[in-house]
Nucleic acid binder design. Structure first.
Length: 576
RNA sequence: CGGGGCGUAGCGCAGCCCGGUAGCGCGCCUGCUUUGGGAGCAGGAUGUCGGAGGUUCAAAUCCUCUCGCCCCGACCA
């Protein structure tokens, strides 16, 4: 392809709106342009990358036995009302009305639509298992879209939905998708990790996220050295403490702690350390109840764990007024001793503690030598805190390490949540009507492209993994002589004949401009053709990643590059 | 939704405090020279200063409203 026939509006300067590498570089390389907040047009170069990723996804999904379909972007409100998500989804669900005033929404995901298809068309266990997928534009009216394709409102997603006759089958379908995802992201040339995840709004019983490791990632993951455990920090379990403290219980003591409201201030004032302190957090649940959550001073509460423990979906820290009413003290002095009529949950780390410090439920007061059971009752001891680096792994106890990740894929074992709500049943061998057991599986296509850039770029631009590069080779004739033009033409033909994807910079630009654009666009190899080299019958082949430049006889370039490309190939299986 | 910031030429920005009718760099167009890492010279085009209203003899500049965008937070398959 000649550059003169593609719109590749590269920018010399960084656009003001872009913060992170992928966003900045995609704009600069002319791959995307913004149309509105979180809404982008893919230009030819950007679309090529998207198509490459889609192709890998299709091959692996097909290989795993899934069948491609295409559902509509718009779906009718009735389907969403059946599962309750019309109300539950909130403002993220973009709604509209048609000319007859009927309610519709732009699909943020497609469980309702696919489950409706299933219940209409599938009758018998003989037809199962089934797995349908599509690559379709999704719309989620994100509160704050950001970082270009990383978190858009409109975005391309591959979503798949499996239907099985029982839990066991659903587990197998889940495993197939899990394996396919490994294959997909490996083929995309990404350094990623599958981690245990929370199921969030989608619901279900088991879930893994596929995280591309990158410092700009919005998610924090924890994993152990030997690969036995990896989880999203939202999900990561903390094992119970090894044993109770053997320290003798001392007598309760009330002390004045003027203006000491933070853990740090209290510790400084009482000359103790945060490990001896217990924070009392008061939360509102959606049912208007107040619960007390006890967390060791140097730990953070994990609200998802608290929600799960209580079986609620809404949880907010109580405001100052409520704290004052419940604890009869300003924020910072609440404590479990003497708190009446509210449920007390405690992180299990506290089970191992003796003689700790808590708030005194009085202004400027704390209590020393507090002991659970003796001084207050705990309704539930369980894992309630955020895991952190250094904590023991729940599988084997080696210390966890943390990293930032970009969520590019997510697999869920849904169970019968949707089939139940929508009556998606089939007849089992005994003629009994049975609920389908479902799974759902998403991949952010644009986000995968963005993640690849986050992981593969340098100061000058992008460095594409071969499998998803917009082009394999960037041809750069740098002088205008007839010899160079003719050689370039011949070279282009021979490379294309060898099955390579070649971008030919045929613009009338100076060498420096071409070199800089080529580094920015990041094709894995650049071939420079100039009079200087041709004098000895050679062209320069540059490996974008290593920066290494090799002089190659122009007659052998096609062979040389074919070899280089197969050396740089990411693992790939034959087509289905 | 809370906090902060920005909308001035295609892009990046100055001018705004202290009103006097718009400028710089890059890009773009023409010509000549140049041509292996973002060329030089000469000439040229381009703006309803985000929008609406107000104050004023006069508004990019001051005031009010409004729309859009960015960042932090809350939120989030």
């Amino acid at each position: 392809m000649r550059t003169s026939q593609l719109l590749i509006p590269t920018l010399r300067e960084d656009p003001g709106e872009a913060e992170i590498a992928s966003h900045r570089l995609m704009l600069r390389a002319g791959m995307i342009r913004k149309v509105a907040a979180g809404i982008y047009t893919y230009l030819p170069l950007g679309l090529r990358v998207i198509r490459k990723i889609e192709r890998i996804i299709r091959e692996e999904m097909n290989r795993a036995g899934a069948q491609e379909i295409l559902m509509p972007i718009l779906s009718p409100a009735e389907l969403w009302r059946e599962t309750g998500r019309w109300d539950f989804y909130g403002k993220e669900l973009l709604r509209c009305k048609d000319r007859h005033e009927r309610d519709f929404c732009f699909g943020p995901t497609h469980e309702e639509v696919i489950t409706d298809l299933f219940r209409r068309e599938v009758r018998s266990y003989r037809q199962l298992p089934l797995n349908f997928y599509q690559i379709q534009t999704k719309f989620r009216d994100e509160i704050r879209p950001r970082f270009g394709l990383m978190r858009g409102r409109e975005f391309l997603m591959k979503d798949a939905y499996s239907f099985d006759k029982d839990e066991e089958g659903a587990g197998r379908s889940y495993q197939k998708m899990y394996d396919a995802y490994h294959q997909i992201f490996t083929r995309c040339g990404l350094n990623f990790r599958a981690v245990e995840a929370d199921t969030g709004l989608i619901g279900g019983s088991m879930s893994h996220e596929f995280m591309v490791l990158a410092d700009t990632g919005e998610e924090t993951i924890l994993f152990d050295e030997n690969g036995a455990y990896a989880a999203n920090v939202e999900r990561a379990e903390v094992p119970p403490p090894p044993g109770a403290s053997l320290e003798p219980q001392r007598s309760l003591q009330k002390v004045s702690t003027p203006n000491a409201t933070t853990v740090e201030e209290v510790c400084t004032f009482l000359k103790t350390s945060p490990e001896n302190l217990v924070k009392t957090l008061l939360y509102h649940t959606e049912k208007e109840e107040i619960v007390g959550v006890l967390i060791r001073g140097d730990h953070e509460a994990n609200e998802i764990k608290v929600k799960r423990c209580l079986g609620v979906t809404g949880l907010t820290l109580a405001d100052a007024e409520t704290v004052a009413r419940v604890s009869s003290a300003p924020v910072g002095f609440a404590g479990p001793v003497g708190l009446k009529n509210i449920q007390i949950l405690a992180d299990h780390a506290i089970q191992g503690m003796r003689n700790f410090v808590v708030g005194g439920n009085e202004s400027d007061t704390h209590l020393l030598n507090v002991n659970w059971d003796r001084d207050f009752k705990v309704d539930i001891f369980t894992d309630l805190r955020q895991a952190q680096a250094g904590d023991p792994s729940p599988r084997g106890g080696t210390p966890l390490r943390s990293a930032k990740g970009i969520e590019v894929g997510h697999v869920f074992l849904l169970g019968t949540k949707y089939s139940q709500a929508m009556g998606a049943t089939f007849l089992d061998p005994n003629g009994k009507e049975t609920l389908a057991v479902m799974g759902c599986y998403g991949i952010g296509v644009g986000r995968t492209a963005a993640a690849a850039i986050e992981q593969n770029h340098d100061r000058k631009g992008m460095i594409w993994p071969l499998s998803i590069a917009p082009f394999h080779i960037h041809l750069l004739p740098v002088t205008a002589s007839e010899n160079v033009q003719e050689t370039t033409q011949a070279l282009y033909a021979s490379l294309v004949n060898a099955g390579l994807e070649v971008l030919w910079d045929d613009r009338d630009e100076r060498a420096g401009v071409k070199f800089n654009d080529a580094d920015l666009i990041g094709a894995p190899f650049q071939v420079t053709i100039g009079d200087k080299g041709l004098a000895t019958g050679a062209v320069d082949v540059k490996n974008r990643r290593t920066g290494e430049i090799t002089k190659v006889s122009y007659k052998e370039v096609a062979t040389y590059l074919s070899n280089q490309l197969s050396l740089n190939k990411t693992p790939q299986l034959e087509n289905w």
